[in-house]
């Protein structure tokens, strides 16, 4: 009796622990998304809330459903949105590539450093998180401005004759995104590279592979999960980034995050804004699904 009771308690506890995160996701991710999804099929009105209801509830029950696809069609008609999506994907992809190119050697160097140096280096990677993200972006504004630190330095050294326009350019946006998201690239790469067994590198070298071939044949494929995880962690937030393009980018830097903000808060067109958000989500879901598929196929190989 006793053991049965404790077994049942065990089972209940296990399912509680397993399903708790799902409840969390359901409450705070799926429900808001469904609300946004629902709004995207409404018409905007000047009212509180600023959109028409989808369902008309009479006393006897559901009497009518009003669904409009105008918001989505509108997104297709006005190429402003498509250009914004494209630009966002381009900026996010290029920033991700930059983060990868800068982050990979850094992560690799950290794994190869001795223990004390490794801890200090890891701390330095995480250190920027200790100050507010906004403050750091403002600091970049100060440095990039016409009379900022960078222009002054370059003028003083004689590389340029007059201040360059750095702030409010695409360059500033790339710089800001790469700077902000670099730790999200380095940390998963570090985790993946740190697990690599040095004896496997040595075996490849022993079998006749030059250091470059060892990197291509062994290091790179064996750190693939870290590369993919890092890329997703940079790409996904970067694509919807609002603060960096707004503060560092020029007025012409139309990224989708900014469009979304404009539709919600300036035009108060919640249905169109919701449609923008819905499509953005689908753009983001595609790389995640690809990653999942990769993990499923690679998962069987990684288990030793």
């Amino acid at each position: 009796m006793n053991t049965r009771y404790s077994e049942m308690a065990d089972k209940a506890w296990r399912s509680f622990v397993i399903y708790l995160p799902y409840v969390w996701l359901l409450l705070f991710f799926l429900t808001p998304f469904l609300i946004v999804f629902k709004i995207s099929f409404s018409d905007p009105v000047i009212a509180q809330p600023p959109f028409t209801p989808l369902f008309d509830w009479a006393r006897s029950g559901l009497s009518a459903v009003y669904i409009t696809f105008d918001n989505f069609l509108f997104l297709f008609e006005d190429d402003l949105y498509w250009l914004s999506y494209l630009k966002s994907v381009r900026v996010a992809a290029f920033s991700t590539l930059c983060c990868l190119l800068i982050g990979y050697p850094m992560a690799y160097a950290i794994t190869r450093a001795d223990t004390t140096a490794r801890n200090i280096l890891l701390l330095l990677v995480i250190l920027p998180f200790w100050t507010s993200f906004l403050l750091r972006v403002y600091a970049w504004m100060g440095m990039l401005s016409t009379h900022g630190l960078i222009n002054k330095g370059l003028l003083w050294m004689g590389f340029i004759d007059e201040p360059m326009k750095l702030l409010y350019t695409d360059f500033a946006v790339y710089l800001g995104i790469v700077y902000t998201y670099l730790p999200f690239m380095i940390l998963p790469l570090y985790a993946a590279l740190q697990k690599l067994d040095l004896s496997i590198h040595e075996a490849a070298s022993d079998l006749g592979a030059t250091p470059f071939r060892v990197f291509i044949d062994i290091t790179l494929p064996m750190s693939a999960t870290g590369i993919i995880a890092g890329c997703l962690l940079v790409f996904i937030p970067a694509i919807g980034e609002y603060v960096i393009p707004t503060l560092l980018g020029g007025s012409d830097s139309l990224m989708i995050g900014r469009q979304l903000f404009n539709e919600f808060f300036e035009n108060r067109d919640w249905p169109v804004a919701s449609a923008v958000a819905t499509i953005l989500l689908f753009i983001l879901v595609i790389p995640i699904m690809l990653f999942q598929r990769y993990q499923i196929t690679a998962g069987t190989n990684v288990n030793e």
Binding site: D197, S199, I200, E202, A203, A204, S205, D206, L207, G208, A209, T210, D217, I218, P221, M222, N301, V302, E304
Partner: peptide
């Protein structure tokens, strides 16, 4: 090491985990 006419087999074997048996043997 990659220019020596010598090959080594270590205690942990260091078999490449992401390659098949055939590819492991063909690598060198």
């Amino acid at each position: 090491p990659y220019q020596r006419p010598v090959n080594m087999m270590v205690q942990s074997y260091a078999v490449f985990p992401h390659m098949t048996v055939e590819k492991n043997v063909a690598y060198g």
